[in-house]
Design a binder for these strands. Structure first.
Length: 754
RNA sequence: GGUCGCUUGGCUCAGUUGGUUAGAGCGUCUCGUUUACAUCGAGAAGGUCGGGGGUUCGAAUCCCUCAGCGACCACCA
């Protein structure tokens, strides 16, 4: 053995050894109790980040301990297609090549992204191996595997049959730059200072004006009313009157609605239901129509009653300038407040402004799904650790609204809905024709092009809310086009514990479902965990797991959230390379004491690298002692207990105490605490104390037997935390063990009496 | 605005149901190469546990209050 533990000489070989031994592969032994974890799938085309490392470290710890305790353990690995994120990454590549997604038809684009992902996919798989994850690779799943797609679309059909799916026009959070909608949860808010325009709207049959304040004058072409608060005395007499919408020939009513804040602006609000969520609600309450003036490319589309057609087709920002300019010329701007600070909705990925847009959307009715899912956590059938995170779940369950599940992204599971072009003449279609995108309603397109051409070059399809559709996995007739939207990624990953186990009917499913623990970052409790519980109960009657353990987010060294723009992102591989996988894993585990967010624990990684070297050198010492002795050292089980000294008794009782403490802590998911117990037992009690005093002892046959016993037991305790080095030492001490061929990974977990 | 959390030695943090001189890692200082390990050993300095008040025989731990920080959610045109 070298003087210093060199992780690079061992890690790869040891992982191979484990894999070859078959220790990772679950057998479905009816005599054993199963213990199952499904790995939250990392992005297939991404790379390992610190959060992934922490996740793997914790789950591997849980699995390895249970394996040693004699459970039939199954840990299923997988990767996620990460629809939106991957498509954005791919489009960035396209941009470098001077292309964009509009240069491809949908099917070709999908194929290209697929190739791109498959080319990169082995990186993350390799990194999962490098982490030492004892996952069952024979059961590996990718979120777009054919059987996964089948199950997900079957669930959609079942929901549809159960009348839990509907389509509706809906004001969605649309990002014109990303080209897709975002769920409310995916929208962030940024404070910003923007000019607040006070615009005069003339009153009909009067020389008076009513003044409204807005930061978005360009949306005024979509105004359908002006609203004031019913309690606002200033405007009482105007309610029911009519205003003339400037720059158009439109007359709009002045209505009352409690949503209006009397103290903001002038107390009068323009109502633009096509482009503002609040106004959308107001319009619903007052049965007002909705006028959309911005299309999904973020360009203006003015209604026919608008003057100033030169604004038509402009981008939003250009249109705003022009509109203000026109209003100024007409002397309809009373004031501009340039100090107005407000928060704007931006998409969580690119930080682009969200353009609230009316689009027909697929929805899941959530009420009947969420109620039992709420119940199982309330009753404790599903327990959330740490406990204080639980209230987040309840609040979400109480406030969850119907779930819009369609996304305008190609890379994902395509919604299995089909529209007949004969029955739906007003399908809006874009398709690629000889390298150029053609757009229009299908009826007029069919006059110029054959159906086959349109079908082949199809890029996107927008079916009106009232469109007739058929839900089917296969094309239901010659004149049908398939929905081009895909499912929200959480719709499919919400079924992950089911699809990975071969739901609805497989030996694995019958044996391993429900799983035991779902371990993930608290960030996705609502996005993911809640959906899994909903689907699990809906499809099987049982929640998909018993415990939920939520770990904190690993922040950068400066205490801030890691972000590319701050340049503080930590690449775990650098630490893995320098200090070893064990030290990295152990450092992260001991950094996450109670599920709170924490800074990347650089010092702890260093400390555990030192610790690794410590236990390595204890092994060297033991080996040296055994080699220098001619006498036979009995195994501890054969040592006469009346021959042992107080020093022996002391270390043995401390060891038992440590085993108890570690078990108690781990049962409560208190990993850092458990790690601390082992660390101090090995370093202080065993190495500094017992080992040092044993150097002076003459009864080497006893002292060495105890030392060997306590040390090997310590290795077992430590193995789930630091699997590589413990297995490496276990191998080096082959000749000192009773069963030299035994691997540590499948050795028996210590209990107090052994 | 709502919710949750945080404030403990120079730094990063532990402290489970309140109970003897408040712990760790890193850092600092002094000394040290004897049968493993300088990624080490021996020793040391350093905290009125954010401020104030209360409950209690006893509070870092429970309650109230003030101040500061952070995260999430909601959101006014």
């Amino acid at each position: 053995m070298d003087k210093i533990y060199n992780h690079k000489l061992y890690e790869e070989k040891i992982y191979e050894l484990w894999e070859k031994s078959g220790a990772f592969i679950a057998k479905r032994d009816p005599k054993k109790k199963p213990y199952t974890i499904v790995l939250p799938p990392p992005n297939a085309s991404g790379r390992m980040h610190t959060g992934n490392v922490l996740m793997i470290a914790i789950e591997d710890l849980l699995i390895r301990r249970k394996r040693m305790q004699g459970f039939e353990t199954l840990w299923i690995p997988g990767t996620d297609h990460a629809g939106f994120e991957t498509q954005i990454t791919y489009e960035r590549e396209l941009k470098k090549a001077g292309k964009s997604r509009f240069d491809f038809d949908r099917n070709t684009l999908y194929k290209n992204i697929e190739n791109f992902v498959f080319k990169n996919k082995n990186l993350i798989e390799k990194q999962i191996r490098n982490m030492g994850a004892s996952v069952d690779w024979t059961r590996y799943k990718f979120t777009l595997d054919p059987d996964v797609v089948n199950t997900v679309t079957a669930t959609f059909q079942k929901l549809h049959k159960d009348k839990l799916i509907y389509r509706d026009n809906y004001l969605v959070n649309f990002c014109p730059i990303c080209g897709t909608t975002f769920a409310d949860l995916e929208v962030k808010h940024k404070t910003r200072t923007d000019p607040l325009y006070y615009i005069k709207y003339p009153l009909k049959d009067s020389h008076d004006f009513i003044v409204v304040a807005t930061v978005r004058p360009e949306t005024m072409f979509g105004d359908v009313a002006i609203s004031v608060n019913p309690k606002d005395k200033r405007y009482n007499k105007l309610i029911g009157k009519t205003a003339l919408l400037p720059l158009t020939k439109r007359e709009i009513p002045i209505i009352e609605d409690f949503m209006v804040d009397i103290n903001f602006g002038t107390g009068a609000v323009k109502i633009t239901p096509g482009h503002d969520p609040n106004d959308f609600q107001v319009a619903k309450r007052h049965n007002l129509t909705t006028i959309s003036v911005i299309d999904i490319n973020g360009k203006m589309t003015l209604p026919s009653d608008a003057d100033y057609k030169n604004i038509d087709g402009l981008t939003v920002n250009k249109a705003r300038e022009k509109t203000v300019q026109e209003l100024k010329e007409k002397n309809l701007i009373e004031n501009i407040d340039n100090t107005y600070e407000h928060s704007v909705a931006v998409c969580y990925k690119g930080g682009h402004d969200i353009e609230p847009t009316i689009l027909p959307n697929w929805f899941v009715k959530v009420k009947t799904l969420k109620e039992p899912a709420h119940e199982v956590v309330k009753k404790g059938d599903v327990k959330i650790y740490p406990k204080w995170q639980e209230s987040k779940y309840h609040r979400w369950m109480e406030s969850m609204l119907d779930w819009p599940i369609s996304r305008q992204v190609v890379w994902g599971i395509r919604i299995p809905a089909w529209y007949s072009v004969i029955e739906n003449e007003n399908l809006f279609i874009t398709f690629l024709n000889k390298g150029k995108t053609e757009a229009g309603d299908v009826k007029s397109l069919l006059k110029k092009y054959a159906f086959k051409e349109i079908e082949k070059g199809l890029q996107t399809l927008i079916a009106p809310q009232t469109a007739k559709y058929v839900i089917s996995n296969n094309k239901p007739g010659d004149d049908f086009l398939q929905e081009t939207d895909t499912f929200d990624t959480w719709f499919s990953s919400g079924q992950w514990p089911l699809v990975t186990l071969g739901y609805p009917n497989s030996d694995d499913f019958n044996y391993f479902y429900p799983t035991d623990v779902l371990e993930t970052a608290w960030e996705i409790l609502r996005l993911w965990v809640s959906r899994m519980i909903m689907f699990g109960i809906y499809l099987t009657g049982k929640p998909p797991f018993k415990d939920v353990y939520l770990h904190g987010i690993v922040r950068a060294l400066d205490g801030k959230k890691m972000s590319k723009s701050l340049g503080n992102v930590i690449n775990p591989e650098e630490y893995q390379d320098e200090f070893g996988t064990d030290a990295l894993r152990m450092g992260l585990i001991s950094g996450t004491a109670n599920g709170k967010d924490f800074n990347f624990p650089r010092d702890k990684v260093l400390a555990y690298r030192n610790f690794a070297n410590k236990i390595w050198n204890i092994a060297r010492f033991i080996l040296m002692m055994f080699e220098s002795k001619e006498i036979e050292i009995p195994f501890f089980s054969e040592v006469m207990l009346d021959k042992i000294t107080n020093s022996d008794r002391d270390i043995l009782s401390k060891m038992e105490k440590t085993i108890t403490n570690v078990d108690l802590s781990l049962n409560k998911y208190r990993f850092a605490e458990a790690a601390d117990f082992i660390y101090h037992f090995i370093w202080d009690d065993l190495a500094s104390n017992f080992l040092e005093t044993s150097k002076q002892r003459s009864d080497k046959n006893i002292s060495l037997s105890v030392l060997r016993h306590v040390y090997l037991t310590s290795l077992k305790l430590l193995h789930p935390f630091m699997p590589f080095i413990t297995e490496a030492i276990w191998g080096e001490l082959k000749d000192l063990r009773k069963y030299p061929d035994e691997l540590l990974i499948t050795a028996k977990w210590p209990n107090k009496s052994s």
